[in-house]
Every structure is written in structure tokens, then in C-alpha cells.
């Protein structure tokens, strides 16, 4: 008998109070450590030499003009990828921050400043207002980080995030302006 089993809908009730009490307040996914991302971007590199890029006031003005983005940091974490003293490119760490979100990502640049690759290093979401609190942020910023803060091991899929990904794209634009201003 060609009776379809799926034409039937089963109805579920979602008691509001229970739904509210189960959901986690924060989670994080660590995709790559800085070292892993460096090796992926420049497999041939034998050394990563940290370039301490500190912005002068004129740099900030130039970067903001070139990228049309606000500069919120006093410097940029940048490494020169080298092999036998030869420059293979630049490896840059940056982050974008939203109301409930903090994303660390890396940008690999060719020596001439073309983008070689962008990878997300860590993705954190929070619904307890921690993200905008300074002490909560301080524990991540600038860390190469081995301490996992993942809440549990289930797969949590990143969803939505149209604006968040746009902010990473804008961040990459700012990194290119940092290249033009400070690395070139």
C-alpha cells in the first residue's frame, strides 16, 4: 500500500521555562592554534619572526583612511614567515567582536601583500553579556592559548552569522591597510 509515513506530523510542546533553563550561556570552538595556522599558511617556512607592529598616530590615520575601518588596537600581531632568510610572507592575527561574539582569525599575506588565506582560529559566543565585559575579554586577547574553554564536546553548529562573517571580511581589509602602512 503506497501509504506515506511522513504525511503525518507529530506535535511537540516546548515548555518555555524548560527551554530557557537548558541552554548554555557561552561556548567556544578552537579551530587552530596560532602555530597550526602558521604551518598551514606557510608549510615551507623554517622560522616565524615576530614583528612588533605598534601603531603611531599617523599610522592609525592612514589605516583608517585606507580601510574605512576604525582601528581599535594599539598594534598588530604580525610574524614574518621565512625560509633560509628569504621572506615567504606575513602572518597576521586579528579579531572581530560583536555583541555576543568574539572571533580570532588569521590572515596570511604574500610578500607583495596579496591575501593568501584567511582562517578562523577561535569562535566564541556568549549570551550572558560577558563578551563586552573587559575581564572576560582579557582572558583571550593576545593569547596563543592552549586552555580550552569549550563547554562540552557536542557539535554546535555556527549558524546565521552573516554580519559576523562580513566583519571578518572588513577586518581583512583593515589588515591590508596595515600592510600598506607598516609592513610594505
Amino acid at each position: 500500500m503506497p501509504r506515506s509515513i511522513t504525511t503525518d506530523w507529530v506535535r511537540w510542546t516546548v515548555p518555555t521555562a524548560i527551554v530557557m533553563s537548558i541552554a548554555p550561556a557561552a561556548y567556544a570552538t578552537r579551530y587552530l592554534t596560532v602555530e597550526e595556522a602558521q604551518r598551514l599558511a606557510f608549510p615551507a617556512a623554517t622560522r616565524f619572526v615576530e614583528a612588533h607592529v605598534i601603531f603611531r598616530a599617523s599610522d592609525v590615520t592612514a589605516i583608517e583612511r585606507l580601510s574605512e575601518q576604525k582601528v581599535r588596537t594599539r598594534g598588530q600581531q604580525v610574524w614574518r614567515a621565512q625560509a633560509d632568510g628569504r621572506l615567504l610572507g606575513f602572518f597576521v592575527i586579528d579579531y572581530v567582536i560583536g555583541k555576543h561574539l568574539l572571533i580570532d582569525y588569521s590572515v596570511a599575506l604574500e610578500p607583495d601583500g596579496r591575501v593568501k588565506g584567511v582562517e578562523v582560529l577561535e569562535y566564541r559566543e556568549s549570551y550572558g553579556s560577558e563578551i563586552t565585559s573587559h575581564s572576560w575579554l582579557r582572558q583571550f586577547v593576545g593569547k596563543t592559548g592552549r586552555d580550552q574553554i569549550t563547554i562540552d564536546k557536542d557539535i554546535r553548529n555556527i549558524s546565521g552569522a552573516t554580519l559576523s562573517s562580513q566583519h571578518v571580511t572588513e577586518g581583512v581589509k583593515r589588515i591590508l591597510a596595515v600592510y600598506e602602512t607598516c609592513l610594505r
Partner: peptide, 13 residues
């Protein structure tokens, strides 16, 4: 291994 990149107007993992 688990990686993510900004593509398709979102994050692709």
C-alpha cells in the same frame, strides 16, 4: 581536524 573560513557570506566549517 576542524577548520573554518569566511565564505558564502557566512562561516564555513
Amino acid at each position: 581536524a576542524r577548520r573554518a573560513r569566511p565564505l558564502l557570506g557566512t562561516f564555513v566549517e
